[in-house]
């Protein structure tokens, strides 16, 4: 996993709420056996119509909006556990998703793939949407070490992140490295467990 430390980028606004993982990556694109190449089908049915023509009114098709940050309405990533949603976002170029609420499984999948989910309040989310609306090229700063999302010099949001996952993101570590180091403890648990 690539480490994630600081991000200085403009952002793409997607104010819809309850964006489910079927929208992020429709099931018919889950047939790959590797993690690569999902970005081209990110939000497939919102980006393209049934004739595969580009839908000009969708934000990802609007050249004025770009960057490594996606800002989305509440309950982002609900539905299916497909990690392909995180792979698709990453492959497309997103490193940070900001929302007022994340679905649990998506949040875990994002963190396991070097994507930082930042939860902000509804008010802060509106503020961020307004800032992008006023100036689509506006750059936000994210400092993971100090857990600060800077909208500008004056407006800074302190966000929370699990200490363990923060360390993993900063260093590019996977949970699996840590779990493998627990071999003896796992063995002793297995030896003491009675199951039916």
């Amino acid at each position: 996993m690539e480490p994630l430390i600081n991000i200085h980028s403009s952002a793409v606004p997607l104010p819809a709420e309850d964006i489910d993982t079927d929208q992020i990556i429709p099931a018919r694109f889950l047939k790959a056996i590797t993690k690569e190449g999902f970005g081209k089908n990110l939000f497939r049915d919102w980006r393209y119509d049934k004739n595969n023509d580009i839908k000009g009114d969708f934000v990802l098709n609007n050249p004025i909006y770009k960057g490594q940050i996606l800002v989305a309405g509440k309950n982002f990533g609900c539905g299916s556990s497909r990690e392909h949603a995180a792979w698709a976002l990453y492959d497309y170029g997103f490193r940070v998703v900001i929302s007022s609420y994340f679905a649990d499984i998506f949040k875990g999948n994002a963190l396991n793939n070097g994507i930082l989910p930042i939860t902000v309040s509804e008010e802060e989310l509106h503020l961020i949407f307004r800032r992008i609306e006023t100036d689509p090229a506006h750059h936000f700063d994210i400092d993971l070490k100090n857990q600060i999302l800077s909208i500008d010099e004056k407006t800074k949001i302190l966000f929370t992140i699990d200490a363990f996952k923060k360390e993993c993101l900063l260093k590019g570590y996977d949970d699996i490295d840590f779990l493998l180091s627990l071999d003896k403890k796992i063995t002793s648990f297995e030896e003491s467990q009675i199951i039916y």
Binding site: S81, R82, E83, A86, D104, I105, G108, N109, N112, N113, D162, F164, D174, D175, I176, F178, L179, L180, L182, D183, I186, E190
Partner: peptide, 22 residues
């Protein structure tokens, strides 16, 4: 409960997951 593919790999390798208690 449902998990992502990174966690599928973790369980395959270690039979464990690192979780926050819900």
């Amino acid at each position: 409960f449902g998990i992502g593919t990174s966690q599928v790999e973790q369980v395959m390798a270690t039979q464990c997951l690192i979780l926050n208690k819900p």
